[in-house]
Amino acid sequence: PESADLRALSRQLCLSYHRHFPLTKSKAKAILSGKTHGNSPFVIHDMKSLTAGQYFINCRQLPVLEHQRSILPPEEPAEELELSVFRRIQFRSAEAVQEVTEFTKSIPGFTELDMNDQVILLKYGVIEVMTTMLAPLMNKDGTLFAYGQIFMTREFLKSLRKPFCEMMELKFEFAAKFNLLELDDSDMALFFAVIILSGDRPGLVNVKPIEDLQETVLQALELQLKTIHPDCPQLFAKLLQKMTDLRQLVANHVRLIHLLKKQELQMCLHPLLQEIMRDLY
């Protein structure tokens, strides 16, 4: 494709990214650096602040479609702290899956792919995209949550009992390295599309059109990185290497969730997340 076509594709994906993801990297950066003119996030650092912060967790959610409303886990007021935190994180994750799905459908050519292949690409790609999306929301001390209204400290997450305390630590380590690449929101949009369009996911029927789509997005990403980050010629290669780390990270996460399902009898896994993680790794 001509570079004008590649730039048009970049613009299209960037617009879709801003349309579907409420907390962008630039917004998160402003919140984390205290440049939001008095609207600081509510800090959750212990059980007392968690109880007080529940209002913020629940007060802004994307519109939920009727058929999705019926699958939301019920509120359980007397549940244990760890299960309560885990349920809230799951709920937000299920919303994020819907956002990533809408973004995915906007990738030119995606909806023309075989329907089974679309399901496989989304199933394998969505947690990798969500993990990457989490990176800009994190710094060494904690992570933004609930559209940036909450900052949950890393120490609080580490203080939860095993195995809950292990759920976020690897993601903080990934985020610290990923954030060094200093991508902007438009780079992230293209990178998400590259992740989704991975032609080596197990069970794909018609790989060629997926690889062709990915090749075009890769060209657009390479062109954009060279244009926006001319002082970092290795950025494209460094970013592609992150895809290997992401797969490892997601495989670990899924193993941990399967372990939780066996050990925590009271734990209720969100049906959408359950569907994604079933037979994943």
Binding site: R19, H20, P63, L65, H67, Q68, I71, V97, Q98, T101, E102, T104, K105, S106, T111, M115, N116, Q118, V119, I120, L122, K123, G203, P271, L272, E275, I276, R278
Partner: peptide
């Protein structure tokens, strides 16, 4: 596969709220 992934399948088939 779509049978075992009913919710994902439905999300993929739903028209995007942003696009009406």
């Amino acid at each position: 596969l779509t049978e075992r992934h009913k919710i994902l399948h439905r999300l993929l088939q739903d028209s995007s709220p942003a696009e009406g």
